[in-house]
Amino acid sequence: MAWIVKPSATMKTPGRAEPYLTADHRAQYERDILPRYADRQGALLPILHDIQHRHHCIPWQAMREVAEFLGIAPSEVLDVVSFYEEFTTEDHRRGKYTIGICQSIACEVCGHPALLDHLRARLGIEPHETTDDGRFTLLAMECLGACEGAPCALINEDRHDNLTIERLDALLDRLP
């Protein structure tokens, strides 16, 4: 959980003419998500999941649009985005493939450091960085809840267990 301190009064955030939340999205959220919660803010996490999934980040303008849509302050949206590790701001846009190597205890004693070092060398990036071509983001994640298959990793939404360097290479080579 990072603490990001920025001069908010003078901070300029990029935007674009075309809205991120189209009328279709708004209608879909109104129909599928909002009725589930007692107030509009409850829908914030599901909506942010949707935006993160589509854009690999939560653009600044999208935060303002979501705030306006839910009737909350943009700062409250940023508050949530900056707290949860799955949501990233525009300057930390995730790559096409996010490779999350589990670094928690069972994976460490079963050999995750070798996997992480291998990916550092192969991709030329450190954990929490993205390759210049925007293809891979490397993450060192906390426990993925698959300790019986340690060491394990998430590649986008798929988990792979009992990894070796060879298996990991084969998985990455197969990615389109």
Partner: peptide, 29 residues
Amino acid sequence: VDCHMHRGAGAYICGEETGLLEAVEGRRG
């Protein structure tokens, strides 16, 4: 009875019961 799925977003603290409630309400956990 209504039952809805609510996905967290990568925060261990949301396993604490009141942190979980905050996350369901759309705030930091």
